[in-house]
Design a protein around this nucleic acid. Sequence first.
DNA 1: CTGCTATATGCTTCTTTGCGAGGC
DNA 2: CGCCTCGCTTTGAAGCATATAGCA
Length: 821
Amino acid sequence: MPGPPAVINLTEDSDASELDADDFDDVPLETSEAPDALDDVEVDAHPYAMYYTNAAEPESVQDSGMQIVLEQEQAPNTPKKRGVQWTSQDRKNRVLVHQISVLSLLAAARMRNQWCNDIELRDTLQDMVPEHLVQKLFAIHPRREPERRERVRMFEGFVHDLVQWWASRFRLTDVSAAAWRQPSQELLCGKHLPPETWVDGWITESPAARMKRQRQVRKSKSRGAMEIAIFPPGAAAATPTYLRLLPPPDAHSLQRTVAAAKKMAGCRETSAILFCAMCRALGVPARLVVSLQPPPASIGAAKSQGTRKPALAQRSEEVTTSDEDDFEPLVRLRGSRALELERAQGAKPYYIEPVDTRTPPTVWVELFSKPYQHWITVDPVRALVRPTGNKHMEPLATNRQNKLMYVVGFEEDGYARDVTARYTRVLNSKVVQQRPEAPGRTKGHGVQEWWPSVVRALHRPQKLDRDAAEDAELQDNAAREPMPSSVGSFKNHPVYILDKFLRRDQVIHPPNRVGTFQGMPVYLRANLVHLQSARQWYNEGRTIKEGEHALKWVKTRGYTLYNKRVEEQAMTEHGQVPTEGLYAYTQTTLYTPPPVQDGKVPKNAFGNVDLYVPSMLPAGGVHIAHTAAAKVCRSLGVAYADAVVGFEFRKFRSIPRMLGVVVPSEHAASVWKAIGHAAEQEKRAELQKRQARALKGWKHLLTALTVARHIEEQYRAPQQAAPSEKKRVLNEAQAERQLRDDVPALKPMCASPLVPPPSPPPSPPREKSIVSLDELMAKEDARPSKRRIVVRRSTPEVRPARKSTRRAAANARGNIRYMDD
DNA sequence: CTGCTATATGCTTCTTTGCGAGGC
DNA sequence: CGCCTCGCTTTGAAGCATATAGCA
């Protein structure tokens, strides 16, 4: 998880994302507003160092109890080859995590950009600027210096001096712990980290330690720490790694940012944020530029990164020489008090991979030079001022902590602009391809790409002149990127494409060649056209225009048994592979079905109406989307046609999915009415049927009892035989009830409310055991006439209705009381 | 060692209108 | 007789992403 988004505030950004809500089903998410409670903490003394021990957590550490559990579906065991077997769900998760990270980072950056407008912060910073610099700035005015070229030079000189002054004054602290950089890949790649390891501002916990902490939290009734459980990728069930969030080390609130300004000390990112605020205070249009560092969207990228990283497991002094990137000694994030605590508990220091402040940053500033009418790139940490930035802000490909993927500049008014093109020379060949939904992954026409939609939400709705000029500049920058130098890199290239990478349903139209590579013509991806067969277009409610010729002929791909047979037959008869023509969208037109004429709905060859999309409804017709519609139409004598709304595929056979009928519009109302009527009647009939079944059951039972009594009367043996006889009869009765087990719960005909069955009802106290059926029936006769019949399956008592005219039924599952009417 | 290419492998997508027996 | 339900039918190929080996 990336460090910065201590607070997530998604507004427009969340609208821009095309994340399916379903994807979040498994993520129980509870958030609450997180007030800034650490504001009074000193910036200098590693404000969170004291929390780095397992000592009791101050209540202010975490305000929201948030739990994110990305669970994976249990899949059947697949034989493990080596390493982790990635499932398709893992891949989807990676993209999702990437996208959520990007949005979160944007939100975090936007919030910091807002802080730059804070009056107190601006005043604090403005007061610090030396007088001679302020004078230098004021001197740049058309009235004082009419020569524009001179003003351009003066502005650059001013910015240069300002940056020099800033870099010499601002003290860098907390650099590594607070760095905005690539999150570590170990966990995402399924590597197990030992407990008490620092991971991007989180700390790993052993299950036991977690339980213990949670017990303490419960006892003290305080809010728990924010924690997540990360499951390793792969199909096999595994134990997650538990992470607890540490307090953010950087100036994560406005108050702390102001404090950092007063101290003129903080991390690299804080330096850039404060510099931006200062420039705005001086009246110079300034952008806060952020190179977002989300985890990679593809597994391959993450894997190669993750495996090459030095083992974070070793966390002590010896790690300092583990990597060539390590220029700084081990960062010990300890205050003196924390160190004491640590010594007392025998804890080890956390290892945090260092950051080299000489490498390109992930946060910097752009200043708008009014005389030059261009944005100037400024890195206040390395004291760099450059009219163009790509050489100095692009990290090396080998840099694992900083990957240039999205660079966004936030302006004073809160709008942002995608300025990635300014800072990379490999925008199309590398950068774009790292984003999800790169050209190779999207398909078809009209597919919304994710990042462009995010950018649209960030950009100013109406372009300023300088925005338009910048767009041209950035486009020019991108256009200067050279053509790929290998066949492979043409694949999925966002600008160019070779014939050989065209898919079955793609064609270049118009086929304007823009170059040649190894003898192959090179085309622009912009001219790529997605094609579909006539049938496919028909399924979307479109037909091929008159006189259009197919742009491409391809081998048919019969899927159903029928079509396969047809293909085979064609093969044997003509000796050539059957082909079908493919057409572009522009060659099609909306399909208009023949209209309803003389009250008749025109049918197709199958005797129904194709209604795959609403536009395929014949003129003068109405779709009655009700399953009972056909029956009603038949009885009413209304001409109708079944509506086919789609297909289902089972066992290589396509089955039309029917839903309702199409009728002439003049009959629609009457058909709907009849449907309502029929439904009511059906309901009544159903009820009657159930009652008839219940009555039959009762009749059966009573007959059985009568017969039993007759038999008993005729063949009764002297006294002793009676009990066993009674038992037999009762068993019979019970079997009878079991036969009726499927009788559904009967709703009363009248409107009396159905009382839910009290469960389980106490058995009614029995006065004394019944010895014979005679006794039983005599008892029944003796009872006062009751309007309520209770049948309890659990009791071997049988209390049939005395009069056969009484309608009665019982739910064989027992204990449902039926109110007779 | 890195980057490129070819090959192997495993997963995903594409597809687009039955029939007859028997019961009610 | 008409309508409904049930059971049987069959079980691919292309395309794509990724992993891996080999080569320059």
